[in-house]
Simulated assay, not measured.
Amino acid sequence: MADKLNEGRVAIVTGAGQGIGRAHALAFAADGAKVVVNDFDADAAHAVVGEITDAGGSAVAGVADVADWADGAALVETAVKEFGCLDILVNNAGFVRDRMLVAMSEDEWDAVIRVHLKGHFVTLHHAAAYWRAQSKAGEQRAARIINTSSGAGLFGSVGQGNYVAAKAGITALTIQAAAELGGYGVTANAIAPSARTQMTMGAGEAMAAQMAAPADGSFDAMDPANISPLVVWLGSPESSSVSGRVFEVEGGKITVVDAFQRSAEQDKGSQWTPGELGPVVDEILAKSPVPVPVYGAR
């Protein structure tokens, strides 16, 4: 059996009380990492800690609101106090408040943006400050950030405007973090997972049927555990050359998403007039990739 890639390393996994986050926490522990299991639900966090310790791993609960500034700092402090350091931050916490844009309330918008986008920034900020201090003290770590975007954030999803905006922001935040933190030994990447979770199972009968485990015992492409191997690898020292990238993960399929790439262009060399732009826009669009359809669009 190959050596464990994360033996002795320390990871924080947010939203790890259930679903994909729980799978990540278990996978890191199985790969030799010591894990701070974060969740807003104390019972859920402690239950996952129990699973890890019962299997011979090392874990502690970090019960915290990831979008709270002091709680985010406390998560990093917990890792350092309990395990001596921090090497890996996996931002996974989130929830949905789905509604069409014309019916969405201000509170529904703010709540989703807060937990997803601000929640990623808060923990990232405090972890990055720790790693910068380590680097300046001559103790630079092979530090890793793995953020959780979504296919919805990359391509759009009808009825999820708040979630789409938050997840798209997370993708951009990841690219920004990779550029700003590389000098401190930090890489930052994002995943867009597709798996069976409480959020997806609550998204309607059609989605629930698509996400259900196969009755015949064949490969369960929607098992949340399918997402974790890539996250564990991205958290390891072996992934040092990969940063600022986005990966879709579903079942056994991993896809690189080239977000925010420039495509066709036409340069006049002087200012355009509105009347001449119709054919120009038609031409450059014809030379550009066709956008991926928005999920749920007719």
Rank of each mutant, 00 (worst) to 15 (best):
S270P: 02
S239F: 06
R144K: 15
P274V: 10
I12W: 04
A206M: 04
S239Y: 08
V35D: 08
H125P: 04
C85M: 00
A143W: 00
V13Y: 05
L124C: 13
D71P: 11
A165N: 12
R99I: 01
A264M: 00
Q271F: 15
A190M: 00
C85W: 09
G159A: 01
V257I: 09
R22A: 09
K268V: 10
K4A: 12
A190W: 09
R22D: 00
G202Q: 00
W272F: 15
V102D: 07
W69M: 03
Q210K: 03
S228L: 06
R97D: 15
P279M: 06
A74V: 10
E82P: 13
V115F: 10
F155P: 03
G183V: 00
S236K: 09
A128V: 08
F247H: 15
Y130P: 15
Q210M: 10
P214A: 02
P279F: 04
G138E: 10
L89M: 13
V290C: 03
N162T: 09
T123A: 14
T187F: 00
D87L: 05
V96G: 08
F121A: 12
E276M: 06
T123M: 14
A59W: 04
M201A: 12
E283C: 03
I227M: 05
V242A: 14
G151T: 14
R144L: 02
M104T: 15
A195S: 05
R141M: 13
I145Q: 10
G119N: 13
H116L: 14
A25W: 01
P237H: 04
I227H: 00
C85G: 13
Y184H: 01
T174R: 04
G251R: 10
F219W: 11
A61E: 04
Q266H: 09
V232E: 12
E238D: 12
